[in-house]
Amino acid sequence: MSDASINTQLKKGEAGFGDYFALLKPRVMSLVVFTALVGLLVAPVPVHPVVAFASILFIAVGGGASGALNMWWDADIDRKMKRTRNRPIPSGRVEDTEALALGIGLSAISVVMLGLAANVFAGLLLAFTIFFYVVIYTMWLKRLTPQNIVIGGAAGAFPPMIGWAVATGGVSIESVLMFMITFMWTPPHFWSLALFTKSDYGDADVPMLTVTHGRKSARLHILVYTFILAAVSIAVGFTSIGGPLYMTVAVVMNLLFIRSAVQIWRRDDAVAEADNYLAERSFFKLSLLFLFVQFGALLGEAALAPFGLGGW
């Protein structure tokens, strides 16, 4: 093998810093950062800004680490799906073992550092979240059950609980309900995505609800989960972190969300094909806004509290 051919191989397989960063799923990480920050700031115990910053950073790194481990395990199905084909491992820019090493290394660092920066309970909760996402969801249930999204959603729902635990050192009804918002939001969010990217999950043999139970069933599931989500997010409004601002926002957003879910439920695929899944696409976009606005309103309540305006 000539020197030239070695260099060519290196160039082809060599990853840049951005490729390793992409392994951490930055878009998912932004959701983790935002919801964890809200959980931390709405808690009744003040946290020193440096401790808060470091804690959020280590929660984000932990979330990123589980993303890298997810990409390591799922590289085979990522190669089959259009949406994931350009990820660092299937595109050949990063070796799968590199992703494994990065995932394990960052997991350990983030858990230990969060335990030291905040408290042991927060560190353990982060460790459990990584374990849940990587082992329970990615390795065990994702390819086994059409309820995979429901279970995976739990892992994504933990960050506000961890943020709350950073401040308080424990769990309470408020943090459990914040968990429930993201937990109930995730299935309709992803099932609406699955409705308009229909061939992808089927090609990868992932038992998506749309494939195993049919698309009509998925439409009904979206509606049911949207109603449960509405109940949970209204319930948050009655706790110590809720208030008039949050309640107003929650009522408006949930009415919009339910209306959009009813539209999806009343349609069939023939109608959806005709307008290129317009209702499903707009539900998906609304779901992104939904979570941001809901948690933003909680933050608004906490920001108003010093002026005697937040809360009931």
Partner: peptide, 21 residues
């Protein structure tokens, strides 16, 4: 260069955070 610089800056940032904590 980009990769090495990225790793260097990340490690530098980590040291600063641990020191501040």
């Amino acid at each position: 260069l980009g990769r090495n610089l990225g790793v260097g800056l990340t490690l530098g940032a980590f040291i600063i955070i641990v020191f501040a904590l």
